[in-house]
Structures are given as structure tokens and as C-alpha cells.
Design a protein around this nucleic acid. Structure first.
Lengths: 219, 219
DNA sequence: AACGATTTTTAGACATGTCTAATAATTGTT
DNA sequence: AACAATTATTAGACATGTCTAAAAATCGTT
């Protein structure tokens, strides 16, 4: 139905609207490692197909149809990433490329069965929310670690902006996404925050802690 | 590395060499639902890349490199089919299209992990052999049902030529691939053969029976 | 062995998606 | 408000993969 390239452009527009509130021609070109002129061509094409609204010299936005398709792509991408990590044992930092290919495999039944097989996960291994089949994003009760209640068990569910670099740094400290822990104390002692969990704990700079999103355990 | 279309042509050449012993331009065009002239173009291209030997007016054969790639594609296709049927619960007759897309996803680690996840299956849900990572096909100790020993437990492992129509007909009689049964008797009684299994059995025409490949249970 | 039918290749056209270079619009600064 | 810098679009080229129509080679018959 839609070519690989068309889908890549739709996803880029969607991502930029989320991240920056607007999708400029250059922005899209940078995401896709292509040229602005190529993007202009594609935006015209997608506008003709009713996926995108393109105001020349003022970037693009998604139509309802375009948004629906973008969310379907995000859904596919995140479900495949979940499969690759949880079932095939890949590291969360190894799966993006492959998921990028798998997300273009087009079959409704495939993705719905995969979703069921994985137990209808609501968040992917990076902590990003997985839209449901109708494009609805799951709600989250998260708060930055710096605002979480002391003495309560929490789960580390995501990192602000999904920074892989930060995620990697945390892995080194034994802090992985999905890990549960109890916040032992919060004190601006020399700009550091103590986090405790079963069998361990670590100190974090307040700056790092502000980027960590946690959720009370029962939620 | 190789485009979707290049891979489709390589697989078509491989399939025709297996089925018919030769791969003619028209034969390839029919498999791919394309035109002979397009195939000629692609054969020239693949010959230049060292995947295929193309003798003008005399069809194509695969080089060692081409055969290796073709077997890798067959491996991917059959592993994905196995995943779709055994894990996602698709019927064996629903998976071809999707596997056709999945087989072009290119990632060595992906396919080796998938293989391990599935328990290194040697045959796919259609009963077709799955080449290993080096392109070796598993051996089979099969014999047509009409030559199988009476009174011994057998497993139905494949159907000659992999005919989907025949497979479907058998499904109707309660005979599915992978089913085990004991051959109760073999007698040319009115051209029919009796097959018995736990809780049942059925009569088959001798003609149908000759197409069924069985394997002694322990093998 | 020659001829007609079939198969294959070549030649030239077209669609898609990309690029560079040139042009046009917008933006920020003075 | 005007101009330089930035950003976007257009124009024209090219690669890939496909097609139709025409020409060339092969095959099957007699």
C-alpha cells in the first residue's frame, strides 16, 4: 500500500511533531539522512494521498489518516522491539535497526497476534509507550525520581527523551529499565541522591536523577 | 545488500532448478508474475554480481555464492513460517505471504536467534526441510505411505510436491502434518488404503497415499 | 534442412525516488 | 524597511526496475 520511503517520511513527520511541535523540510531530511529537495517531493506526494498537510515553506503536519498510519508504524516498531528483547534475548540497544525493517512488514493479523503473544505489553524495552490497535497511547503515572516518595517501592520505567547514552550509563550502575527499588533517602548532599534496592543501591547526581521516570509498583 | 527484487529472482532461479532442473526466462517470469524482458535484465545484473550464470537463450543457473544466498532465503522463509504457525497460532496455509515479506529482513543475528528460540526446527509446518546456517539440508528417512511398514508407528512429515490442495484435503480427514499413526493394513482393496491412529483412522485412495511421506517415529 | 511457432533478448519508454544546482521565499538583524 | 543568511522549492539529471513492441535465436515438425 505505502512504500518504505513513504512510511519513513510519515514516521519522521510524526516524530518531529512530537519532539519539536513542528516538522520542517530540513528536519525531516536530517532524520532520514536525505536531502531537503527529496523531502519536498515526498511531501507533495503524501499530501496528494491525504496523509500530510503541506504548506509550502512552512513544513508539514499529519492528517487524521496520516496520524493513524504513523501510530500504526510506532506500534509495529515497539512491538517488534519488545519481541526482540524479551523473546530473542537481544539487548535493548541492539534492536533499533532490525525493528526499523520489521515495522514495514505489512499485515494486520501479524501484528495483532504478535501483540497477544507478547501479552499486550504497554511499554517497550526502552520504556516508550506502545499505542494500541486504535492508536491510543497508554497512560502513565510516572514522576521524575527527584519527586518520588521516599520509602515506597518504585519501578524505573523510562528515561526522559529516551536517551540511549543515559540508559547505557545506568546499566553500568546496575540500574536497568523495569528494575524495582525503594527510594532510601533524598537529600541534596553534595548534589547527589541515594537510591536503594534489594541487594544494593547507588548514588546518582541530582541532574541524572531528574531524568529518571518512576512509577509506584502496583500501577 | 541485495534488493527485494534481486532476492526474489535468486529464489525463483533456485526454486526452478529444484523443481524442474532448469530455470528459463519465462519460467522465472511466471513465478514472479512479471515479464520475460524484465527477467533478462535482472539476470544480466545478477550475473554481473556473480550470483548467477546466464547463458543467453539458455536460462540461468546459480553460482556457489548465489546458491548460498538462495538457501539463506529459504532458511529465513521456513523459520518465519515455523514461528508464525507454532508461536503466533496462524494456520499453515495463511503464512506464506507474510513469510515472503519477513524473509527479506536482513540480519544474521536475528535469524540465528530466531532459530534457537524455535528449538532449531529441522522441518517447517508444511513439512519442508529448513537448511542450517551453512546451507545444509537435514536428511530425512521418509518413504511414501504406500511403502511404509504395517503395524509400525509413523509420523506424517510431508506431502510430495508440497501441494497445498492435498494438504487441505487431508486436514478434512483429520490427517495433519506431524500426526503420528499406525498403519493398520495395506491392501489394494478397491484401490484404497486404510490408515489407523489413536482414536481413529481413515481410508485413502492409493493415489493419495502414494503422495504422503512418512518417517518411523524414533527418527 | 527449412519453416513456423515459441522463446529470449534488445531497444526504447515510463514510474519512482533520489541527487545537485539554481531560484525563490522566509527570517533575523541592523 | 532592507539585506544577508537561512530554509525551501523547482528544474533537470540519474539509477533502479518495470513495461511494450520489435528483432533475434532456438525448437519442433515435416
Amino acid at each position: 500500500m505505502y512504500s518504505r520511503s513513504e512510511e519513513d517520511h510519515i514516521k519522521a513527520v510524526h516524530g518531529l511533531l512530537e519532539d519539536a511541535g513542528q516538522a520542517s523540510t530540513t528536519g525531516i531530511a536530517e532524520r532520514l539522512r536525505t536531502r531537503a529537495s527529496s523531502v519536498t517531493d515526498m511531501l507533495k506526494k503524501l499530501a496528494a494521498k491525504g496523509m500530510v498537510r503541506h504548506t509550502p515553506y512552512h513544513g508539514a503536519t499529519l492528517t487524521t489518516k496520516g496520524r493513524r498510519h504513523a501510530l500504526a508504524l510506532v506500534r509495529r516498531h515497539r512491538l517488534w522491539e519488545t519481541f526482540l528483547v524479551e523473546r530473542l534475548g537481544f539487548g535493548w540497544d541492539e534492536v533499533h535497526e532490525v525493528a526499523e525493517q520489521l515495522e514495514h512488514v505489512s499485515s494486520g493479523p501479524l501484528i495483532e497476534r504478535l501483540d497477544a503473544y507478547l501479552g499486550h505489553p504497554r511499554f517497550d524495552p526502552h520504556g516508550d509507550p506502545i499505542p494500541d490497535a486504535e492508536g491510543r497511547m497508554p497512560e502513565r503515572l510516572t514522576a521524575p525520581l527527584t519527586e518520588a516518595a521516599v520509602g515506597v517501592r518504585h519501578r524505573l520505567v523510562a528515561v526522559k527523551d529516551g536517551s540511549d547514552a543515559l540508559l547505557r550509563l545506568l546499566d553500568g550502575k546496575g540500574l536497568t529499565l523495569g528494575r524495582t527499588f525503594t527510594l532510601v533517602a533524598r537529600q541534596e548532599f553534595d548534589g547527589s541522591l541515594q537510591v536503594g534496592w534489594k541487594g544494593g543501591g547507588c548514588d546518582l547526581s541530582a541532574q541524572v536523577a531528574a531524568h529518571l521516570l518512576t512509577e509506584p509498583i502496583d500501577a
